[in-house]
Design a binder for these strands. Structure first.
Lengths: 347, 347
DNA sequence: ACCGTCGATCTACTCGAGTCAATAGATCAA
DNA sequence: TTGATCTATTGACTCGAGTAGATCGACGGT
């Protein structure tokens, strides 16, 4: 008979509440009271003894046991369509940091733009008793939140949905800031401003497209052309190729994400079309990546830190029955070379 | 008296093992046996009844309870220095996917290049009973694994450390593939090839630097110049500026990451120095980003998928006492424009 | 001295699932 | 028919922590 490796030696907390209680000469209940600051009082003297015992033994409460009893795992879950997108990476980083500061850990699920994978992640999160979920759903699809609502799990949507959902929603002010970006392009003298729009399902207009239309209309400019493509670099590249083939090529573009803009820029370089001299570009997101392209991208910066903070607060610092709120965050125009700013001499 | 929102209604599994047992007319033990396929047999007839009850009620085991009893939470933890780096984002994505396919969820911790934050994450992971940890430590520092080893938590290092640690290590073949990249540059006729090297603490040479040296020496080329800078875009940009100021500027550079190369490229554009005509560039990582720069980056592609698969296998499919192994993965040269390949006509 | 009050502390039950020891039935040999 | 053997099933205990309800003492008022 072959000896198998001993898998049964499961890793368990070396020291439990009981050990602390024994060392401090108190019952296990007081240890709990001290650790949680309640629900009953403990005399200062006893508290001190317990704290010393905790320190001496290096006791740390078993969160799984706590999760079993009270249903709180001190874990939050986040689902993003694609973590390798610079925008979502930045957002995930900010959310993780805000959560960590409050003692929460974060489960990350990459849904790869698939509703099915997204649902699987949500299911897994629920099974693990997460205390809350940040959901960047596949844009404007109706997320499968059946797992969430029944369980009363606090959820924050990090993109707006056209569907009414019983959750908080947090996002940038798409319409107004896109409008400003387009108006800025017009300020450089452009009258034919195209839109490279990421693919969005659903019936309502994407806020960025809305803002672009509003700007053109408000300025009395002729209707602009729209190129639709996926929300990634390859999509932006394709859009760039199609842009180049346009009759009477527009002199400026507003692009719905930095990632797409990177692909678009590559298409311009490849064709020897100069940015911003031949085509001015303004994009959306304000990710790190936009600062180091050539030329550097003028972009609408989403206040990622602030949004992440608000998202975590919405989950942690609120009662279960607070009404769902929508929080819209103003964005900032970051002006760099690609829109035509600061172009006294070009490389 | 004001009515407070009912916070006590903690989210609990709607349906437990007991409900299933009752509906199927069996004891709770058999339900466990069916769900886990053991440790005792169940007659086919009973098994069928139980399965039907499970399906009818939509029962899903409470993982927190399972974690309490057997110490397995079906959760893995991953720590990266910076999730917004395209390389780590890609790696995290691949690991997450491999884990998800096996029913595991992944906690993500961003250590922001800080050993202290890294330790905090590890602590949090241990507290949550993770089944394993993927650690991309702050390069070559001695990670604080005191939390891990005592607990017997399976760990995989996703960068090599010069310190002997009792864990599996997985990484790319730095030395050999870097050497190939530099040899490729030499193949384009370059004799003065510089190195832009990310900052690394510790006493041993980074594998990429080693490979660069080996190549120069092997080819009988004169000693090359080294520019050291942080592992990010801004670092690469700074390195580029310093590179431009070099007397008798080298005609080629090997750069230790795509991210740095992006910054380096920006510095070249800004100064009107053409790549690859004036300076040829080869970088390391093979992240998505490298494909859409201008010019597109020739880079050493790390087999991220394969490494992620191996990492997950190393944790899940192995006994606790398997000896620590080191797995080195061969890389592939991705030839694009920046090194001088395919330059018949330039933009 | 006696009773009531109040704060501190302890005992004991609970959460949901894993699993061992005991038990109930079925099968077979003598 | 009796016992031995084996399999399917069950009851009961366990993991670690939260907390209600019981208990204990000290103190104050009479």
């Amino acid at each position: 008979m072959v000896l198998m490796p001993d898998l049964s030696a499961s890793p368990r907390p070396v020291v439990t509440r009981k050990d602390v209680a024994r060392l401090a000469g108190v019952s296990t209940a007081v240890v709990s009271y001290v650790v949680n600051g309640g629900p009953k009082n403990v005399s200062p003297a006893t508290e001190e003894k317990v704290r010393q015992a905790i320190a001496a033994l290096g006791y740390r409460p078993n969160i799984a046991a706590r999760a079993l009893k009270v249903g709180s795992s001190q874990i939050l879950g986040m689902v993003v369509p694609k973590i390798s997108s610079p925008f979502f990476a930045g957002l995930a980083k900010a959310v993780e940091q805000a959560a960590e500061e409050r003692g929460f850990a974060m489960l990350l699920g990459d849904s790869r733009d698939s509703l099915a994978v997204e649902s699987r992640h949500l299911r897994n999160f629920v099974d693990r008793q997460v205390d809350g979920v940040f959901l960047c759903s596949v844009v404007n699809h109706r997320p499968d939140v059946s797992e969430l609502d029944g369980r009363g799990i606090k959820t924050v949507l990090l993109n707006f949905s056209e569907y009414p959902l019983p959750f908080d929603a947090i996002g940038p002010e798409f319409v107004g800031s896109s409008r400003q970006a387009v108006e800025h392009l017009a300020g450089h003298g452009h009258r034919d401003i195209a839109l490279v729009q990421g693919l969005v399902t659903g019936n309502t207009l994407d806020g960025r497209e809305q803002g672009w239309r509003d700007a053109l209309e408000g300025l009395g400019l002729p209707e602009g052309r729209v190129i639709r493509c996926p929300f990634d670099r390859a999509g932006g590249y394709e859009a760039g190729r199609r842009f180049l083939a346009l009759p009477q090529r527009p002199t400026a573009v507003f692009i719905t994400s930095d990632e797409q803009a990177v692909g678009f820029l590559r298409a311009m370089h490849e064709a020897g079309v100069r940015v911003p001299e031949d085509v001015a570009v303004f994009s959306f997101d304000g990710s790190e990546e936009a600062e180091f392209t050539w030329p550097p991208l003028s972009t609408v910066r989403q206040p990622v830190q602030e949004m992440a903070e608000a998202a975590v607060r919405a989950i942690i610092g609120s009662g279960r029955d607070d009404p769902a709120r929508i929080q819209v965050f103003p964005c900032e125009l970051v002006l760099r070379r690609s829109c035509g700013c600061g172009t006294t001499h070009s490389g």
